[in-house]
Design a protein around this nucleic acid. Structure first.
Lengths: 306, 306
DNA sequence: CTTAGTACACAACTCACGGTTGTGTGATTT
DNA sequence: AAATCACACAACCGTGAGTTGTGTACTAAG
């Protein structure tokens, strides 16, 4: 691909060969091989160079794009000035939404999003420089953050109940936490030891809910499928989670009140991290922070205060 | 890259090897080679498979993107169901703008844009199936379109005068064609034999203008540069052409009247072309057609009637 | 604790492929 | 007609990507 683009840019095989520090014959072979693989002629050879065929013209932007993507791929793991690397708790969490918003307003900042196992892994990764920031519900009980890790609350996301059309609460405009007692709430994929597990443990302990975390996570499609079809099951979902599910299938989102459980998202980063994108991210989050940390909400006692 | 993604998707080297029809050792070597080239560890090898490292997680989306782009690149020259291939007269012509608009409203339709030499080449390419459609100012004098080529007028773009700040007409809010007589108008890059050349030849013959088409085209940057700095020179530019030049540098766009020369763009395609995107494109153009073919405009007599 | 099984790495080998040098052909220029 | 230019073809060769064979570390079962 690089040879193809170089030939296009220089206009002739010989010049491209010089640019690539190989012989003209090697360029000829590479182009011939590419043409053979694609089963089309990319250049018309003339007596003073090579001109693109129509197929070649159509192919060219894709070739350039491929080189760009390859370069970005290498840059994504290049120590030094690599893209801002941010850990989110799940791909359909509010943190992901925040990062999408950040990317929309700052498309010039290269971004890589990863998903680590738990806070401790995230903190270790931040300290080692493997990631630049992490969205977490710091901190798990009894584990204060190290001194070199800074954090700030960025979002408190209300939880909503998600039910199928045949669920007993499907018709309710809102439900209280007390009403949920006795109903089966299913949260597959909650891994013991993570802050999600700690969060729901606290929720269960405080309000006597029945939360089943059993079973492996077969993905959100399977979860929604089961919820839609099983009258006795419901699940929690962040208010800002956008369901990929088309509005059909009869799924209902029902606000929870008295109090509204909110999931607190904080941004963590290393005190000394010099990445320029990190400062931009923090500024962006500070500017767009929605502070509906109103009364009538509940969060575990161990979340860090604002 | 494909091996890397396959290992991620299958979770282990052996399974990936089976998928790729190579041995486990070959997969091991490929991954080791990739890790060596990138100088990072992509997987942590465990006793029951391979898990991504943080670097691997950051690298993964880029790898997937690379494969997607590679696939699109191949598809762009694949006979059969390849992307809609459209020829435009120049990258900064109104036709390019129309295609950008089409892509914006129909992003699902794969598109490749090429630029051919002249109408005859375009017509030949349409008949051979090398391209699916072409934006042209059909037809050059004395050359009627073949019967199997259909065409429809899609846009009549008014020409404007572009001058530097020191030009004699720089202060005018509009100029008449008669006023342009005696001024030097510079249009580099107009290749003899093309419909652009025929258009400007007619314009010169009818109104006695002085148009210099000499000199090779050094790109629009060089053109704008010269226009901005040379008080005695002006050039024509389509009304819809977006200048990449920042508003600075004192360039002036001046409407031309009595009459307003318009450049007529038509879409050409083959009667029997079954490409689904072509029908969509025609429908889109019909829906968004702007018909300011009002009185007071001029176009060469040989352009096809509406 | 032993044994079997799983999963990846290392070593030795081999052949195909990508590069080189050398030469040929057709077009353009002088 | 000669010289130059640009690319293709042919022969050769070494690297490297694949193979087979084996080793090691970990897990699971008896």
């Amino acid at each position: 691909m690089r040879t193809f683009v170089t030939v296009v840019d220089t206009g002739q095989f010989q010049h491209a060969a010089a640019d690539l520090s190989i012989t003209q014959q090697a360029v000829s072979k590479r182009i011939a091989g590419l043409e053979k693989d694609l089963a089309v002629r990319l250049f018309t050879r003339t007596a003073r160079g090579a001109r693109l065929t129509i197929d070649g013209q159509a192919f060219l932007p894709h070739a350039r794009e491929l080189l760009r993507v390859a370069e970005r791929a290498v840059a994504s793991v290049l120590p030094g000035s690599r893209p801002l690397r941010v850990d989110v708790i799940a791909s359909r969490s509010a943190a992901s939404g925040l990062m999408r918003g950040f990317h929309r307003t700052h498309p010039e900042i290269e971004l890589d999003v990863v998903m680590l196992f738990d806070v401790e892994t995230a903190v270790a990764a931040i300290r080692s420089g493997a990631i630049d920031a992490s969205f977490r519900a710091v901190a798990v009980p009894g584990r204060p953050l190290p001194e070199d890790i800074e954090s700030v609350r960025v979002l408190a996301e209300p939880l909503q109940l998600l039910t199928g059309p045949a669920h007993a609460l499907a018709g309710a405009r809102s439900v209280t936490v007390a009403q949920l007692a006795g109903h089966r709430i299913w949260m597959p994929g909650i891994v013991p030891g993570t802050e999600w597990a700690a969060y729901y443990d606290d929720l269960v302990a405080e309000f006597g809910l029945t939360i089943e975390a059993t079973g492996p996570n077969f993905g959100s499609d399977a979860l929604l499928d089961t919820i839609a079809d099983t009258p006795a099951l419901a699940t929690f979902m962040g208010e800002q989670t956008r369901l990929v599910w088309p509005a059909g299938h009869g799924l209902r989102r029902i606000p929870v009140t008295d109090p509204t459980p909110v999931y607190p998202h904080s941004l963590l980063w290393h005190r000394d991290n010099p990445h320029p994108g990190l400062a931009t991210l923090r500024a962006h989050l500070a500017a767009t922070a929605t502070s509906h940390d109103a009364a009538g909400t509940w969060a575990p006692g161990w979340v860090i205060p604002r």
